[in-house]
Design a protein around this nucleic acid. Structure first.
Lengths: 193, 193, 193, 193
DNA sequence: AATGAATGAGCGTTCATTCAT
DNA sequence: CATGAATGAACGCTCATTCAT
């Protein structure tokens, strides 16, 4: 399995560094190869083409979000607490990895539509877990039973995403994880008194 | 003033059509010129460079959002109602103009970071108006006075934006404006009962 | 019409020189552009791609062979004399243009199969004229009436082609046109006494 | 001697199959290795480089033509009959081996000039035998004594070659060996009555 | 003001060959 | 002898921008 070979991860990590530091459109394959310490041609032993590198970056790292979230969903705690842990996990992963945050929030969005559709497909697994938390909350009476699950998910994800992007655009000047409680409260109670 | 000359708007509108129909990366200056019915070189009498066209597209159209929002902010109604009207206006403008929606939600985000920072600057005026609604709500006791205004704004804008993008990606299959009440309710009360 | 613009012919002629001097596989587009005194991109205003340059080289020059042959076919002389004039014309054109001879006899044959099939299609017009001479000879009793026209054409063309190629490979050391009579006599009478 | 080891012939035969089926430019060393059932690197234990494989293909197979022709030259028959047997042999070998015919008539001609010069050198032995038949015919009064031997050889070989190439390009649709008599007659008597 | 022909920098990918095992 | 992972040089084509007319 190619994904288990050390060079696979080596190239993925190199890609994140190069994209974060040079921007999406200035991240030539040769630059990624150099950062990874391999020859240009070696890239193509592990990836079909340049796009495949970028998809794999997202795949590998999004897995991390989903893998972290799965046990949380199964815990014996309230849906509200699960939501809290999900937000905290999301913020923590990105706060711990500024390069990755820059890549996912800013650079990868400059990719062409085809690539972004593939990225969205990968994201889906993560959003399904979020949906399951919302559903659980509705079923056990914690959450408003008349609300539209898809819209609720879009609010939760949209808010988390917008918050993170703003934080990245402000060059990580403040602590993202510190915002967890406030974001959580807003999502639970809305803006109204 | 160049902006008042007919060819200026002609080129802006051509750009929106071309980008919506061909995608950001397939929207060459020559294609925009052809659609606008002018020579390639003529573009450069009205715009500094290609990026300037795209910024101007956003500028011209975002003005519409802000211009629509300004009188709403001044109306003698509750902050909650203003929020409702703002969401409805946002959804209505984009639902009425599918090309524009595709361009702002999908295509323009593929531009490079520099362009997107400029786009954000243009967006600022709109977000300031949103901030003023939130502030008013807090001051008149409608909204939670302990909440972080910036986070609240990010939730409102992030939710609206995510909702719209999802709608565009689903190829406008359902009615976006119909979602106004539900989105409004979610933002006011959150997900909790 | 692009073919009438001076740069079209300028690029064709540059291609012949570059290919003759550097060989087919060492004739990069940039080299042809330089020889033609235009920018690389200009090539693509006149030709679809590199292959299109090569096809056009053949097209333009083969036209010369056919155009020279047409009036000969119509002359009021014997088929045998027409054959003589055809051979002489073929040899003369190539003897007068060593670069072209190298390109058609050696370099262009290194192109890929697809290109060579297109080249063959262009050649067809020339071979049709040759066929008409042979047919005429048969009909007026000059040539053997039982012979296979296609095979006769293949003998005539194969002999001319092989003779020319050998001359090119011998670096034009002897006079090609001088061979006309002998080749003509051989084709008419064969090797037998 | 490397040529006697089984893998040597194994690789040669694999090369012919791969080139005939994929075309010259799509016949990578790795593909030939795979077809031969050896590792890429193994190729280089038997051949200096890729060009060396192709030269060897020609060498090995041209030997077959010359080896078949030698006893014919020595037979106690007329020069005209020897010519007949030579043509028949040439056609038979290629008609019996479509892959080889495609490779020698079409694919190998796409190789670079250097390789083709080497191929010509190999061909020489074959052409020398042809020359000796022609000389013999002249000396024993069968063939025209004033004719240029080199030109006669070029006519014979050029005609055979052109005939074969046309047959290959027509995808072997008709029987090549059946043409022997007609080609022989044409070469002996020419087109004239 | 308007034109559009000309410019030229920039990059993903292939594949023959090597060499450590 | 045999392997196959790794190497890295090489090139056709696009398109934003200019400028002579």
């Amino acid at each position: 399995m190619k994904k288990d070979k050390p060079k696979y991860k080596q190239i993925i990590d190199a890609a994140i560094v190069v994209i974060a530091e040079n921007g999406y459109h200035q991240s030539q394959v040769s630059k990624i190869a150099k950062q990874a310490g391999v020859a240009d041609g070696t890239i193509y032993l592990y990836f079909k083409n340049k796009e495949d590198i970028l998809i794999s970056v997202f795949e590998e790292k999004m897995e991390m979000f989903a893998d972290n979230l799965k046990p949380i969903v199964l815990e014996n705690i309230s849906a509200s607490e699960k939501l809290f842990k999900m937000i905290k996990n999301h913020f923590t992963v990105l706060a711990d990895n500024h390069h990755l945050a820059t890549v996912t929030q800013l650079e990868l969005r400059q990719s062409n539509l085809a690539l972004r559709l593939k990225i969205n497909a990968i994201l889906k697994n993560y959003l399904i877990l979020l949906d399951s938390i919302i559903k659980e909350g509705i079923e056990n009476g914690e959450f408003e039973k008349t609300m539209d699950i898809r819209l609720a998910r879009q609010m939760v994800f949209g808010t988390i995403d917008e918050t993170t992007t703003t934080w990245v655009m402000n060059e990580h000047k403040y602590d993202l994880v510190d915002l967890t409680s406030k974001v959580h409260r807003l999502l639970l109670n809305g803006v109204k008194v």
